[in-house]
Computed example of a mutant assay.
Amino acid sequence: MRLRNSLVAAAGALLITLAVPSSAHAATGDFLYKVGPGIPAGVADPESGVCINVPGASESHPAFAPENFTTSTATVFLESDCDGDVFYTMNPGKKLGNRLKFRSVIFS
């Protein structure tokens, strides 16, 4: 009888664990960039696996000089919505210069 109760309790705990949604994974840290001469911007603790159109960037004025101070790899795209063939992958801690232009980013 005790074994059956233990099995039922373990199965119930497993079902509850599977039913509760897990928290979203985040790239802990800051992703910094510029949107104009002397105008810094950034995203703190961005969600992983979600494309971010970087705040402050536009079609006529892309963001530039990204610095990946997160714990995840960042892939920056020239186009919005993480679209297009022009992208660059940045490991954690990587800084790139003013020549790299981008409008969106996604974190691993």
Rank of each mutant, 00 (worst) to 15 (best):
G38C: 06
P40G: 05
M1R: 12
E59M: 12
K94G: 00
I39N: 05
S22V: 12
F107I: 12
L18N: 01
G93V: 10
L15P: 00
P62N: 09
S72R: 14
T17S: 14
Y33C: 06
K34I: 01
F77M: 05
G49P: 12
G36A: 11
V35M: 09
L7S: 03
N91E: 14
S72Q: 14
A63N: 11
P37T: 07
T75P: 03
S80L: 10
T89G: 01
A11R: 04
G84T: 05
D81Y: 05
G42Y: 04
A41P: 02
P21D: 08
S23L: 13
K94P: 00
T17H: 06
S6W: 11
N91R: 09
G38P: 06
F107C: 13
E59A: 15
V20G: 05
R2S: 07
T17N: 04
T28H: 05
P66C: 08
P21T: 08
S108W: 04
R2K: 12
C82F: 06
V35T: 15
V35Q: 04
L18I: 13
C51H: 10
A19Y: 00
P66T: 09
R103P: 02
D45W: 02
Y88T: 13
K101H: 14
A26H: 12
K94S: 11
A13G: 06
A11V: 13
L15M: 14
P55T: 00
P40D: 03
S48M: 15
A24F: 11
L18Y: 06
I39G: 00
F87Q: 15
K34Y: 15
L18G: 01
C82L: 07
P92W: 10
F69E: 13
S104M: 01
K94R: 11
P46C: 09
G49T: 11
E59Y: 07
K95H: 13
P92A: 10
R103S: 05
P21L: 05
N5S: 11
D81I: 03
V76N: 08
N68I: 08
T73D: 06
A11C: 14
D83Q: 11
A57Q: 11
M1S: 14
A10R: 07
N5W: 09
R103W: 03
D45Q: 04
S58G: 13
A19P: 00
G97V: 10
D30R: 12
P55G: 06
N98L: 05
V43H: 02
R2Y: 06
P55V: 00
V54S: 01
P46Y: 10
L7C: 07
I52H: 08
L7W: 05
R99W: 03
H61C: 02
A65C: 01
A26M: 03
N53Q: 06
P37I: 02
A9G: 00
D83L: 05
V86A: 15
L78V: 12
A13F: 09
S23T: 12
N91D: 11
G36F: 04
I39V: 15
V54Y: 02
K34T: 10
R2N: 10
F77V: 08
T28V: 13
G84D: 05
L15Q: 01
P37G: 01
K101L: 14
G93P: 07
F69G: 11
